[in-house]
Amino acid sequence: MKSKSSSILRVAGVAFLTLGLAACNAVHGAGRDVSAIGHDVSRGASATQQGITNTTGASTH
């Protein structure tokens, strides 16, 4: 009986480890997506700022 319960514990441990790694990869991927959005917003703000400067000759700083 001890053998069967230790096998179940091993299988459960491997399952939890596998799920933990999958969750870690999902969070890492979401972090990259959020970072990419931040970079896009920053580039858009810089382009807008440059457009204002070019159109009006006024500094935006």
Score class of each variant (00 low, 15 high):
residue 1 M to A: 13
residue 1 M to W: 11
residue 2 K to E: 12
residue 3 S to P: 04
residue 3 S to Y: 10
residue 3 S to C: 06
residue 3 S to A: 12
residue 3 S to E: 13
residue 4 K to C: 02
residue 4 K to F: 06
residue 5 S to V: 11
residue 5 S to W: 08
residue 5 S to F: 10
residue 6 S to A: 00
residue 8 I to G: 00
residue 8 I to E: 02
residue 8 I to H: 00
residue 9 L to E: 12
residue 9 L to N: 12
residue 9 L to K: 12
residue 9 L to C: 08
residue 9 L to F: 10
residue 11 V to P: 02
residue 11 V to K: 12
residue 11 V to D: 08
residue 12 A to G: 00
residue 12 A to T: 01
residue 12 A to P: 00
residue 13 G to N: 07
residue 13 G to F: 05
residue 14 V to E: 06
residue 14 V to Q: 06
residue 14 V to R: 05
residue 14 V to N: 05
residue 15 A to Q: 11
residue 16 F to R: 08
residue 17 L to D: 11
residue 17 L to K: 06
residue 17 L to G: 14
residue 17 L to A: 15
residue 18 T to V: 08
residue 18 T to K: 04
residue 18 T to C: 06
residue 18 T to R: 03
residue 18 T to D: 03
residue 18 T to N: 04
residue 18 T to E: 05
residue 19 L to H: 11
residue 19 L to S: 15
residue 20 G to V: 11
residue 21 L to G: 09
residue 21 L to E: 05
residue 21 L to W: 05
residue 21 L to A: 10
residue 22 A to V: 15
residue 22 A to C: 13
residue 22 A to N: 09
residue 23 A to T: 13
residue 24 C to N: 13
residue 25 N to G: 10
residue 27 V to T: 15
residue 28 H to A: 12
residue 28 H to M: 07
residue 29 G to D: 14
residue 29 G to N: 12
residue 29 G to I: 08
residue 31 G to H: 07
residue 31 G to W: 05
residue 31 G to L: 06
residue 31 G to T: 04
residue 31 G to V: 02
residue 32 R to A: 09
residue 32 R to M: 08
residue 33 D to F: 15
residue 33 D to S: 14
residue 33 D to M: 13
residue 33 D to W: 15
residue 33 D to V: 14
residue 33 D to T: 13
residue 34 V to R: 15
residue 35 S to Y: 10
residue 36 A to L: 11
residue 37 I to W: 14
residue 37 I to D: 12
residue 37 I to S: 12
residue 37 I to E: 13
residue 37 I to C: 10
residue 38 G to R: 10
residue 38 G to L: 04
residue 38 G to E: 09
residue 38 G to A: 07
residue 40 D to W: 09
residue 41 V to E: 04
residue 41 V to T: 07
residue 41 V to F: 04
residue 41 V to I: 09
residue 41 V to G: 02
residue 42 S to R: 14
residue 42 S to G: 09
residue 42 S to E: 14
residue 42 S to A: 13
residue 43 R to L: 07
residue 43 R to W: 09
residue 43 R to C: 03
residue 43 R to E: 07
residue 44 G to M: 05
residue 44 G to Y: 05
residue 45 A to P: 01
residue 45 A to L: 13
residue 45 A to G: 01
residue 45 A to F: 07
residue 47 A to W: 04
residue 48 T to G: 05
residue 48 T to Q: 07
residue 48 T to E: 05
residue 48 T to A: 10
residue 49 Q to N: 01
residue 49 Q to Y: 00
residue 49 Q to A: 01
residue 49 Q to E: 01
residue 49 Q to S: 02
residue 50 Q to W: 05
residue 50 Q to R: 10
residue 51 G to D: 09
residue 52 I to P: 03
residue 52 I to Q: 04
residue 53 T to L: 01
residue 54 N to H: 04
residue 54 N to I: 04
residue 54 N to L: 05
residue 55 T to L: 06
residue 55 T to F: 01
residue 55 T to K: 03
residue 56 T to F: 01
residue 56 T to K: 00
residue 56 T to E: 00
residue 57 G to W: 02
residue 57 G to R: 05
residue 57 G to T: 03
residue 58 A to H: 00
residue 58 A to W: 00
residue 59 S to D: 01
residue 59 S to R: 00
residue 60 T to L: 01
residue 61 H to P: 02
residue 61 H to I: 03
